[in-house]
Design a protein around this nucleic acid. Sequence first.
DNA 1: CGAAACCATTCGTGACCTGAATGATTTCTC
DNA 2: GAGAAATCATTCAGGTCACGAATGGTTTCG
Lengths: 152, 152
Amino acid sequence: METPKGVAFLLSQLGAFGAQRFAERLRPLEIEPRHVGLLRMISANEGASQQELGERMGVVPSRMVSFVDDLEKRGFVERRRNPKDRRAYALHLTGKGTAMLRQAMLISVEHDEEVCAPLSQDERDVLAQLLSRLSTAHDLIPGVHPGYRHLR
Amino acid sequence: METPKGVAFLLSQLGAFGAQRFAERLRPLEIEPRHVGLLRMISANEGASQQELGERMGVVPSRMVSFVDDLEKRGFVERRRNPKDRRAYALHLTGKGTAMLRQAMLISVEHDEEVCAPLSQDERDVLAQLLSRLSTAHDLIPGVHPGYRHLR
DNA sequence: CGAAACCATTCGTGACCTGAATGATTTCTC
DNA sequence: GAGAAATCATTCAGGTCACGAATGGTTTCG
């Protein structure tokens, strides 16, 4: 049996490699990739409820609780009461949260640079374009990582 | 904060998506992607010991035990005694194991076809070539998925 | 106004991984 | 060669983590 050289395997292999590498880069900030994703999500949807965000990310409500707990304990996120609906929270980034997100974005750019280092600029453009097309063709939501949901 | 459009994120996103999709396709066979990887590994290194394979795959010995247990329970793998070193086993695929691997490889090809469907043949070739270069440049071992090792 | 739906949360369960300890066997060292 | 050290497979206790069901407070529907 020959070893698979298919695109799908390479994508999964490189994707997992990159994710691990990214997690390493984040370690000094004491934050994990998934928390960065959640910070971005909150930043892009200020004031949304936990379940609204959870739905977009494919995360079950009970999991969102501890998820947001992590960020709140570190002072990155505030759970404000929503006066329109006192059942739901309105999630907001704090100043610290925004700063942390900015930090993480910088690391993200460095990381991207490292991953693409073996390619020329032209090749990176071609690759980015092909991957974008695959991503949209398969209905993946920009900026939302499928790894959040373990089952569905 | 704008949503990331970097290559690294797209790789991780598409890789995770593909992995989930592949797992779904495998479900009817009642086997998981990691087991397929192990079957391939054994097939490519007939007679190797558990720890030899574990080392190549980045899997810790204690985990290899239950890992191989799964495959042995299903009758896909045999633990033969190695006469040269009676501490170690010599792992071998059974006929059933070979058949299952063949099945899985077929599904793998179908899966690859699905993932690449949005691209023309030329584009697939370009993509495959770029991904291969990234993979080798980052010292990823062909056919070995980094997801096996959770820590190192 | 009462019933049904909805948000966040807690908690028990199960899956899974890890690292340390164990027993059998081999290799190293003097 | 004999004892010490390393090696292979295994077991087991502990920790993490995700999920679904159940709960309490709140809103909406009929």
